[in-house]
Design a protein around this nucleic acid. Sequence first.
DNA 1: TTATTATTTAACCATATGGTTAATAATTTA
DNA 2: TAAATTATTAACCATATGGTTAAATAATAA
Lengths: 130, 130
Amino acid sequence: MVNNLTETLNFTFAALADPTRRAILERLSFGDSSVTELAAPFDVSLPAISKQLRVLERAGLLTQEKDGRVRRCRLEAQPMKEAVEWIAQYQKFWEDKLESLANFLENVSPEDSTLQEQDSAENDSEGMKP
Amino acid sequence: MVNNLTETLNFTFAALADPTRRAILERLSFGDSSVTELAAPFDVSLPAISKQLRVLERAGLLTQEKDGRVRRCRLEAQPMKEAVEWIAQYQKFWEDKLESLANFLENVSPEDSTLQEQDSAENDSEGMKP
DNA sequence: TTATTATTTAACCATATGGTTAATAATTTA
DNA sequence: TAAATTATTAACCATATGGTTAAATAATAA
């Protein structure tokens, strides 16, 4: 595990950059899970998953507890909090963007100024709950 | 630039995983900047920074606008919003943790239950504004 | 005790990343 | 026009990443 902010952010963002690892975290958000269970949805070998778990562990996003021959994996969300807090300093930049868009729309067509989240759902399974 | 959520998250988190790139983004949060200006604080070559800018561009976190022989770099925060929204689904996990800690402290010493952010400031310059 | 199950470690491979120096392109200044 | 400035591209290198298969370790079941 990691002790200072810079390393926490390095390892946390790196861990979150892989879709398999993000899917593993989503699975764990429904409850603790064994390694085999975690590996099941993916078309890769168990050692591959084992490596992904090391990466998540390094970031402090996952802990393993030995329970007989099974290892119970648990989500640890704390590093995400630090990641979100780092990103939060930029919030005003994307909010400003939205506000100027909102203002633009208001000026152009005052009757229809609803801001709609454009959802590029095409070819995208992120966020699917199993 | 990137069109679907999974790729946005892949590239955005990957871009944020490097401390040099995060520092570049912080610099840009104070205003647009040339490549040379961006490179100045770092002890690496200009081509190295140029590569980092490509990574930020790939994630849609930066745009460059040609202005004579200078390229004006600009922060684009939108992908961070998507990153934060992905992480936000885990918010309750770190909040629950804090709450149970708060409850624990209340039970142990009801007079001194203030939650203090432990700040491991040692060897850590993240978040320093230039 | 011998299998079986769960998981990791070891050794390897291809590709990605982050850095270098040298050369090139484009623009401005002298 | 020649020189200087800004930045990129090219070619290269070391290390990291994400995958593989085979072997090893540990615990439960037969």
